[in-house]
């Protein structure tokens, strides 16, 4: 057997030490950004981690102003109240165009023009009564994204139509955050906005991302989802929909914040929670809501596609997931 000469070991030794010191010195940044009615927990690793974090904070705050339908400074508020808006940022135009494209492909269970129904139910303020059926039917008549018209950079809404980007806004924000991470050549990032999560690049220790899936009906964990990235700039988006996050109780009945636009009532689903894993944040958010509303009836088609992956937990605790997902049940 031929051994290397002793002197040849020294370069190897110094390379190892340099690598160890190099990995210790990689700049990291962590910040919680309170905006868009949620908290974005941001952790980034890369040579420009700090300026990237600052850019992302500015980006999210800008999006808050753009997509805010509830305060006078919000661009969406202004559009809803005047029926017309010139969008010089291009952000609202882009979000509307992308959402319409997804509706054309995956159906119209999610619509931006749902604000009249959201305001009618007013679940965030714990209402005392369910709205009358006649009023619900009237609100449903105003929900139609095809009625939103775009000419160059001008958006026009028909009378009574008003937009709420709550279903897809965070996913869209994460799409733009991923672009910023790429611009700043970040090595790794996790941006966690509770129901929408971005996993970016590769972890400093080169292990895959591990995501614990909790039991929606209890306190334990159902299993562990593992996601590996092949390249440094790869981004994976997770969008989750369930009724556990925001709800109100009226006359002893729990009403969730996700609306079934066929009935005008909060969706009654036999799925407790749905997570969609995709390479686009808006798509992950859009589909997780749509699949939650559909329930187990439409689930099999979603589990077979290669365009995205799904992990869903039924109310009875059954876990469904796409074949391509690396999901290990606890004890399994």
């Amino acid at each position: 057997m031929v051994f290397p000469k002793r002197k040849a070991l020294f370069p190897l030794f110094f390379c190892c030490i340099s690598l160890m010191l190099g990995s210790c010195g990689m700049p990291t940044a962590e910040r919680n950004v309170f905006t868009m009615d949620t908290c974005f927990s941001v952790q980034i690793s890369g040579k420009d981690a700090e300026p990237a974090t600052k850019q992302i904070e500015e980006r999210l705050n800008q999006l808050h102003t753009t997509l805010d339908a509830y305060s006078e400074t919000g661009m969406l508020y202004q559009l809803n109240h005047s029926g017309m808006l010139t969008d010089n940022t291009g952000l609202l135009l882009d979000l509307i165009a992308q959402t319409k494209a997804m509706q054309a492909q995956y159906g119209s269970a999610v619509q931006l023009s749902c604000l009249p129904l959201v305001q009618l139910w007013n679940l965030q303020n714990n209402p005392d009564a369910v709205p009358a059926d006649a009023v619900i039917r009237q609100a449903l008549a105003w929900i139609d994204d095809t009625a939103i018209t775009i000419e160059e950079n001008r958006i026009t809404l028909p009378e009574h139509t008003a937009l709420d980007c709550g279903a897809v806004g965070k996913g869209y924000a994460l799409d733009l955050v991923a672009e910023d991470l790429q611009t700043y050549a970040c090595d790794f990032a996790i941006v966690d906005a509770t129901s929408s999560i971005l996993l970016y690049g590769q972890k400093p220790d080169a292990t895959p991302f591990s995501i614990q899936i909790s039991d929606p009906n209890g306190t334990g964990a159902l299993g562990m989802l593992t996601i590996a990235h092949d390249s440094a700039a790869q981004a994976t988006f997770l969008g989750t929909s369930n009724h556990s996050e925001r709800y109100a109780v009226i006359d002893g009945v729990r009403y969730g914040h996700i609306f079934d636009l066929e009935t005008g009532y909060p969706a009654v689903s036999d799925l407790a929670t749905v997570t969609v894993i995709a390479d686009n944040g808006l798509l992950a958010d859009f589909l997780s809501t749509a699949i939650f509303i559909e329930g187990t009836n439409g689930l099999s088609a979603h589990l077979k596609t290669d365009a995205y992956a799904v992990l869903a937990v039924a109310e009875d605790g059954t876990v469904y997931h796409s074949a391509g997902l690396d999901f290990q049940p606890i004890g399994g």
């Binding site: 009615d37 949620t38 908290c39 965030q124 996790i190 966690d192 509770t194 999560i197 996993l199 972890k203 991302f209 591990s210 995501i211 614990q212 899936i213 909790s214 039991d215 929606p216 209890g218 306190t219 562990m224 989802l225 997770l238 989750t240 369930n242 556990s244 996050e245 925001r246 407790a272 929670t273 997570t275 937990v313």
Partner: peptide, 15 residues
């Protein structure tokens, strides 16, 4: 610990 916990019962953002 996992990198992220997808927890349906986790804290709710105050709206």
């Amino acid at each position: 610990a996992p990198d992220v916990i997808l927890d349906a019962e986790r804290s709710s953002p105050d709206a």
